[in-house]
């Protein structure tokens, strides 16, 4: 079963301001994820957006908490994560920055 993002992260993200877009802006290539040994996206993302489901053999993407940092794009060994910034100012909106 999918482990939901850790409680710690939930509490952290609660204070942030998001204007969540209706569509996912993070696109992965599930076929590559099957081959991917370390799955670095699952531990490099600062908000735990990526969770591997070993039973379903699928990568679940919780895009709602994304802070649009780009780390996942850099660490994916197959360069198969596309970060298409959400339109119209949606997504994270830092109140302090």
């Amino acid at each position: 079963m999918v482990n939901p993002p850790s409680r710690k992260i939930d509490e952290r993200l609660y204070v942030n301001r998001y204007n969540v877009h209706s569509e996912n802006h993070l696109h992965v290539d599930q076929s590559k994820c099957q081959e991917c040994r370390d799955k670095p996206c699952t531990f490099s993302c600062p908000v735990d957006d990526y969770v591997w489901d070993p039973e379903l053999k699928r990568l679940t993407v919780f895009y709602e908490g994304c802070v649009e940092c780009g780390a996942c794009v850099v660490v994916c060994p197959y360069h198969k994560i596309a970060l298409d910034y959400p339109p119209a100012g949606r997504g994270v909106n830092f109140r302090f920055g």
Binding site: E11, Y14, V15, R17, Y18, N19, N93
Partner: peptide, 8 residues
């Protein structure tokens, strides 16, 4: 208001 949050 959708962005208003209650302090936990």
């Amino acid at each position: 208001v959708s962005e208003l949050r209650l302090d936990p």
